[in-house]
Structures are given as structure tokens and as C-alpha cells.
Nucleic acid binder design. Structure first.
Ligand code: ZN
Ligand code: ZN
Lengths: 303, 303
DNA sequence: GTACAAGTAG
DNA sequence: CTACTTGTAC
């Protein structure tokens, strides 16, 4: 049930509305090259899961994760740097490094890998990847990759990243959430664009996503347990009709849309959800909006 | 409820009936010096818990654990060696060593401790403790301590041990259960006696003990879920009377004992439990005995 | 002492 | 995917 909700696929056109990290979207900027990162969540058979609402990827350790980079105009001497940083302000200055056991020569993922890479949580599969930062000098570890140019017929360049420690690694990240900051740079290190992506590396990506999305909704609807009483009833007439209450301008509009199939109903509910989720994130906390989202969540949960 | 049952204090006279490790008591032998290890479970304020039925100590990492050693006749040039070994046969030959993070210089429990001790899961607080074994040569790590002579008026020597890794330490014991083999030796390494004690080092000793004792009872009473139907009813007349069914000779004897206080009732129930637990362990699986034990467990659980 | 989090086995 | 284990926070 809740699961179904989590399968929501946000249309690409809505993606730009979602901040890199909820509440701190101001850190993102596309800059003169309209720098974008795209996550191909429609691909099935992914071993990872992306939560658009959290702008967060849930992935297993060492699994390859593709990111498509987009920039315009197409100059060919740009680089993208991926730097992991702890998300919580109180830990933001701590270095994100691999844990002690994962940093050992005997660990299988370090075999045939140069030692200076062992400490890096983020690896990029590109042969041109260069690893920067220094644990002793307290400079954040990161990996820099030349973007080159998109293959003919494409307007993006895809890179494969992998995360070499779990968030739970005791002597490493030790449960602290982190995000990857992608910066578009030139050879001189000048930054032209920045995009953030939160990541959770764990054994059960699906479980983690569901948990964190639920927490997010609970936090958003800060009236918590009081909500169920306030919830508007969904009328069930004929096939199925449903109520959408918009709060963009404080007034509420009710949409009654008789849908022709369950699939269409779900599609519409999700669509409505995504639109209002975008609004919520752009305009900040708003009780009416949260009510609508909560309502939709419950409706989707029951389907 | 179950808790109360676990508070059972087995009288000292019953202790010898309990094997060092259920099902493998033959590995224990007292030898010419009648070598014994005694665990002072009556002492309150212990940070650790001992399960007589499992012959197992549940303890937090690095907590001091006292063991009283007893031998006769009283010669004064004997030593006791403590060697941790994995309990499961398929792991028995693997070395029990500390995990990678706990083996680092930066770990606080290694401060001011010679490096050759860092690998040892078992430490002894005695200044005369000597650490043997070798990880590279695959010789089991152990700690050897001269026993000296009991203080005047005592017939035992107390040593304090501590366990420097948790069973759960990923890169160390990694959840595998282990036991400590105590051997009574002379200067030449000749072994005169051997006693085993299972140990679980964890964050919640009480929880661990309850869990493992329950598992043990479930395994013992292999008829499992069928038992509740077969359970004899406890008659409640006057104060409280209870039924004890002995199975030593296959026939069942019912004891109806009217007790004068709840405390006395509990004492009697526990006593009965311990007697039959000893029988069970000496004579092996026996349905009637297990029924009686199960009955008593339930009765104690309700008090 | 309870509830949660997250790796793990089946 | 479910259930269990076990460290951890409150
Ligand atoms: Zn790690
Ligand atoms: Zn350890």
C-alpha cells in the first residue's frame, strides 16, 4: 500500500521544482551552463531507488549508479567534481571517508585499486577519474572527471558512480546522512554550477526509502496525529471520484474527476501529488498544502 | 514475567550438575587438583549476568568479570590459561581475535597498553598476566596467569577478566558464539584440569540471556507449540498449590505443597526447576521432564 | 526498559 | 520480502 505510493514517478518537467536537499535548495544553482543532473529512475531493474521528494538515492554498497549530466552551451573542457558532505550542519565540516575495515588492503574492493583511492567513499568508474582531497589535511575527499562531450545524438553525458561504504559503517560515516555535491568546473577549478544529491548507502534501499519518505511526510504535516480527524472524506460515487484541495492562494478548489480506470485514477492522484509537493517545497510549510498531500498519500495508500 | 524466571539462582550444590557447555560437558575435567571455576552470581550490582542453564556469561564489552578458581591440594606453582574458542565446530579452528577497529592504536582501550595485547579479546587484570598465541602463526591467543595461593581464610583465588570485543564486532567475531577454556597448568604447560565457560559480549546482556534461554528451552522441548495443549492445569486452592511432576523414573509424582508466602512459593518453584534442569542435562532429552520444566517456567512467569 | 534502526538469513 | 538480531537513543 504505502509501497505503491513510493512507486510514484515524477514527470521530468517537475524535477527542476524539487530542490537538491529539502530546505536548502538555495545551494543548488545551474549557472551559465544550465548545469543539470538527471537520474534515470524509469529504468527498471535498477538495484537502487531514487526518491524525488527527498532528492535522495538509496543504494547498496559498491553498486554502480548512473548519473546523466547536462550542460549548455556545449563546451568540451568542463569537469564534474563529486564531493560527499555530511548533510547535518553539525557534521558538515567532518570529512566523509571510508571506515577502517573498508580501508584495508585485504578488503576485496581495494584489490588492484591504488591505495590513494581506498579512503574515498565515492568512486567514479571513468578511466579519467582523478581523486582529490586529503584526510590528514582535512580537505574533503572528492573525485573529478572530465565530462568531454555527449555522444552524437545525445545531450547528456553519463557517468557511473559507486559508494564504497554504508552509511551504517561504524568507524566511518556511522549513520550520519550525507549528500553528494556535484560541481561543474573548468580546468582551473572555477565553479560554474552546483547540484546536490542526497545518498543513503544501505542493505535495504527500498526499506530505507519508505522509512525516510514516511518520516518526511510526518514532519511536513506537523499536526501529526491530529490530521486523521481533519481529513476530508473522499466520496466514492460510481467508479471513483476524489477531492483535490488546492492551497496555492489559500482558497481551496475541489476537483472532482471521474476516471475511466484505476490506472488513470492512480496516475491523476500521483500527478496531483507531485504538483503540490513541488509547491510545498518552493513555498515552504503550508497547512492546507500538507493536508492535501496527506489526503492524497492516504488515497494512494489504499489503492 | 519471563524476567523473574531468569533471576533464578541455582544453589551451589547444583552447580556441579551443570555441564560447562550443554551437550559437550565431556570436555570439562577437574583432574587431580579438582579444578573448579566459580561464578559469584549472587553478588548484586553485577553489570553482567550468568545463565547456569547455559553455563554462559552475558556481559558488556570491557566490563570486569570475576572468576573464582578452586583447586586441591593447594600447591602454589599452578597457572590458569584462558583461551577463547569459537563454540561451533565449523569455526572452532578459527582464531578468536579482536576486530579491526578495536585493534587500532587510536582506540581508547589500547591507550597505555602494549601492542601485543591489542589483538586479545580476553584480558586479565592481574599484573602477572602473560599473553600468548600468535595471529600470524594461527596459534590461538590466550592469557596465562599464575594462581599463587588463596588469601588466608579463602579457598579460592579470584581473577578479573574482561572481554574487549563484542560478539557482534563485524570484522572480528562477527556474531559467532565463543567460549573460554580455562586450563589449570604447571610451569611446563602440562594441563591438569579444564573448565569451559560460554560468553556473550553484547550491549544488552539481560536481553541476550533471556533470548538464549528461551531458545534453549524451545529446542529442548522439541514438541514446541504442541506443549501448551498438553500442559497440566495448576490447581489454585486456598493460598496457592502447585503440581510438580517428577520423571526421574518415568512415573509422575505430584507434589502439592501449600506455601505460606509468595516468596516461599517462588523459592520452591525455582528449587524444583533447578533440580529437574540438572536431571535433564544429566540424562538428556526427556519429554516428561521437559513438560515439568515448561510447567514451572510458566508458573514462575506468572508470578 | 522500550522502541527504533539497519544488517542479515532464509 | 519477512523475520530476526542487536547496537543505540531516549
Ligand atoms: Zn565501510
Ligand atoms: Zn571489536
Amino acid at each position: 500500500m504505502q509501497q505503491q505510493f513510493n512507486e510514484v514517478q515524477i514527470p521530468d518537467l517537475l524535477l527542476p521544482l524539487l530542490p537538491a536537499s529539502p530546505g536548502s535548495s538555495s545551494d543548488d544553482y545551474e549557472g551559465p551552463f544550465k548545469f543539470k543532473i538527471l537520474i534515470d529512475q524509469h529504468r527498471t531493474r535498477n538495484s537502487w531507488i531514487y526518491s524525488p521528494i527527498l532528492n535522495k538515492v538509496f543504494i547498496r554498497v559498491a553498486d554502480p549508479f548512473p548519473i546523466d549530466f547536462k550542460w549548455n552551451p556545449q563546451v568540451n573542457n568542463l569537469y564534474v567534481r563529486a564531493t560527499p558532505l555530511f548533510s547535518q550542519p553539525q557534521h558538515a565540516q567532518e570529512l566523509v571517508t571510508r571506515c577502517i575495515p573498508h580501508t584495508r588492503a585485504t578488503y576485496e574492493t581495494n584489490r588492484d585499486v591504488p591505495q590513494y583511492i581506498w579512503d574515498h567513499v565515492i568512486r567514479c568508474q571513468s578511466v579519467n577519474a582523478e581523486y582529490y582531497g586529503n584526510k590528514e589535511e582535512k580537505r574533503h575527499l572528492n573525485v573529478l572527471v572530465p565530462l568531454g562531450v555527449p555522444r552524437t545524438g545525445m545531450n547528456t553525458v553519463r557517468l557511473l558512480y559507486s559508494f564504497m561504504c554504508q552509511n551504517a559503517c561504524h568507524t566511518g560515516m556511522n549513520q550520519k546522512p550525507f549528500e553528494v555535491v556535484f560541481t561543474l568546473e573548468d580546468e582551473g577549478g572555477t565553479v560554474y554550477g552546483r547540484k546536490k544529491l542526497s545518498v543513503k548507502v544501505c542493505s535495504c534501499p527500498k526499506r530505507g526509502k519508505e522509512k525516510e519518505e514516511n518520516d518526511f511526510f510526518k514532519k511536513m504535516s506537523f499536526h501529526g496525529a491530529a490530521l486523521p480527524n481533519k481529513r476530508r472524506k473522499t466520496k466514492k460515487v460510481g467508479k471513483k471520484s476524489f477531492t483535490v484541495i488546492s492551497a496555492l492562494d489559500t482558497r481551496q478548489y475541489t476537483a472532482k474527476i471521474r476516471t475511466s480506470s484505476k490506472q488513470n485514477l492512480i496516475f491523476l492522484l500521483k500527478r496531483a501529488y507531485n504538483i503540490m509537493a513541488g509547491d510545498l517545497l518552493r513555498y515552504g510549510p503550508n497547512e492546507e498544502l500538507e493536508d492535501c498531500l496527506y489526503d492524497l498519500e492516504k488515497q494512494l495508500g489504499k489503492l
